[in-house]
Amino acid sequence: MTALLEVSGVSVTFDGFRAINNLSISIAEPELRAVIGPNGAGKTTFMDIVTGKTRPDKGKVLWGERSVSLLGMSESEIARVGIGRKFQKPTVFEEQSVGDNLAMALRNRREPFRVLFYRRSDADTARIREIAEEIGLADDLPRRAGDLSHGQKQWLEIGMLLAQDPRLLLVDEPAAGMTPAEREHTTDILKRAARTRAVVVIEHDMEFVRRLDCRVTVLHEGSVLAEGSLDHVTQNQQVIDVYLGR
């Protein structure tokens, strides 16, 4: 089992403030990984670095069997090698229908002229339906995405992630604003996705993490504090001090 994503020795400074400090994380394929840590620990910034939104001051981010560096790539290139992302604040295209949001995310050619002459195939229509059912929005396909509830938008964004069919899913706080039943459904979707791919989930809610039942990485002040099973890390004295003790 070689690493799909290898982050090593990465540091980022914002106006003199070191948000990420010599961070190293390795993700395998398939794998489900939870990343926890107090607010401001650098969890979202970690995803920003992997997806090309933020350039690190130093360190390496390597991808895939051939260990290509992601650091020289643009956001869209990184997305096309197979990294999908769900944002902390749900960001869907509110003016467009649920179906069109999913269609845009579907894994198809993305060059302008290909898209101009694209016609939705039956296979694509079926795939959109299938995803919509999985995220519980099957009856909402023609609805304007902006009219969905907060939880439904979260799901739509997860659906867009699935439609992209990436090798690595980066999911930032997927359960925020969801009811307990919705949370349970979300864990199911993520666990199913992680059977064949790498999935990294940032989450605050311990119940949610426990249900994910996977390896956990604890971040604190921009670096890894502990890593292992949830029981293992929650017994770590440092973790208790900085995170659980409060």
Binding site: R85, M104, P112
Partner: peptide, 27 residues
């Protein structure tokens, strides 16, 4: 069509369109 969908998405949130893998500048 889908092209229209992508350019309206660029109008509303171009950063998000990049993370979907579209080369926004070409559009």
């Amino acid at each position: 069509g889908k092209f229209g969908s992508v350019i309206r998405a660029v109008r509303d949130n171009e950063a998000r369109v990049r993370f979907l893998g579209y080369h926004v500048e070409s559009y």
